[in-house]
Design a protein around this nucleic acid. Structure first.
Lengths: 241, 241
DNA sequence: CGGCAAGTTGAACCGCCTCAATGACGGTGG
DNA sequence: CCACCGTCATTGAGGCGGTTCAACTTGCCG
């Protein structure tokens, strides 16, 4: 069921009623399969569609005039994509797939309809956006006030949590489609330095990032390094399921 | 009229009808005057109120366990404060005044009521949040991919735009209550280095930051340094009034 | 087999940090 | 009224974290 992820997510704000769930099902969104490195939303090009990621990895980012890239957030299954570009006159950022992805497509019209007819879902929508914003804010803190090692540890911990919240990944490992260049652009570092940081984490027996897979060897020291507080992910007591 | 700023802001998404304007007026929010350095929202302490800033400067920020501070955004008149803390189980950030401020207070109940009864205002609300998020994203890019000089130039340009959009500040100057420490914590720099950057900008005859006032001497070179694109502020053609 | 994407490593450099000292201003109490 | 203190700004010196440039490896796919 393509909408399961979304319903689960919205329900973690306030549980959806049966009526609301059947309403959501009538939306009947288009389901798309896209390759890796496909651009779904293009910075500056007006947009009529938004998406929910069903499987795979994507990211949203901004390109600077000098060609450099800053990744704002990685998107994992269950995440909304391209809501902000729908609301603003011109999208302030781009969204691209990192791995092959399956996505649900929604129209701007459907969202306006939800706001007219389903105020409780609309409020859950606002919450979902607030939660995404909280993640971005934490990334900002990461760039502003943590060292390269701490940043990397923090992002890895966040990804572990987020993936586990949607039932992907185990206690101490997850599949990870990111390249070292992706990490560098997300963490405001050079790809050379990210490489050295990953080596350090490996040598200290804290974490291994290899072959599209992250394995955490020492969760305590990792959390310690990162100074990770899961509050911003807004789950009850910050607990995992 | 305490709500003028908010109505103007929401109207720039879709113009409010007369009925909507009179609805907003019935909200009759409490008006408060607060000193500088007063904490309105406290990271981790649950919150029942949100605010609109009517006059003065505030900021939202996060504190790290080591005592360091990262300012996420400066707030100027017309800006919402503390919406996200209302939606999340525990606020992910704090909000404090920087100068003495006048603020309007809203309750969580009122916002839910808007969502039930005024879907168009609710949608404008979502837009306002998207616009604030776009600003935060631009700050993230600033930290991740620009040098100290560029960051500072960018922030100054942004503040000039935002203040002019609410009728404060002239073509090339604005009152600015920020200290160099505030700037440092917003731009991910040390206060020592911000001081040197400001000196450089002054010596190059680009911009003067002095006596709680910013004067821009050379707008072209400033915009050039900053690589500033006002699109993310989401005004028609990025134009000033 | 050739070519490209991704990762790895070394060397040299520099942007920004930390530590430390000092100056300027305004408010407060003796 | 002035001495004192706290806040904010300024400047120098030295050091480190991260960048840039460049070379080389490894694995995959056509």
């Amino acid at each position: 069921m393509p909408l399961t992820a979304m319903i689960t997510k919205l329900s973690s704000f306030t549980p959806c009623s049966d009526a609301e769930i059947s309403y959501l099902k009538t939306l009947n969104p288009r389901l798309l399969d896209v390759d890796r490195h496909v651009t779904l939303v293009n910075q500056g090009v007006q947009q009529e569609k938004a998406f929910v990621l069903t499987s795979g990895w994507s990211c949203c980012y901004k390109l600077l005039e000098n060609g450099r890239r800053q990744i704002v957030d990685f998107l994992v299954p269950g995440d909304f994509m391209g809501i902000r570009p729908l609301l603003l006159l011109t999208p302030d950022h781009s969204v691209s797939t990192i791995s092959p992805c399956r996505i649900c497509e929604f129209s701007w019209k459907q969202i306006r309809e939800i706001y007219e007819e389903q105020p409780r879902i609309a409020l859950a929508f606002l919450w979902a956006m607030a939660r995404d914003e909280a993640i971005i804010v934490e990334h900002l803190v990461n760039l502003g006030r943590r060292t390269a090692l701490q940043r990397t540890a923090h992002l890895m911990t966040e990804l572990l949590y987020r993936l586990q919240l949607v039932g992907l990944g185990k206690d101490d490992t997850f599949e990870c489609a990111l390249t070292q260049d992706d990490l560098a652009d997300a963490l405001g570092l050079s790809n050379v330095h990210i490489n050295r940081v990953l080596r350090t984490l490996r040598e200290r027996n804290i974490l291994t990032f290899q072959d599209r897979r992250v394995v955490i060897h020492d969760r305590i020291r990792l959390a310690d390094l990162a100074g990770f507080d899961p509050g911003y992910l807004d789950q009850p007591q910050g607990e995992l399921p």
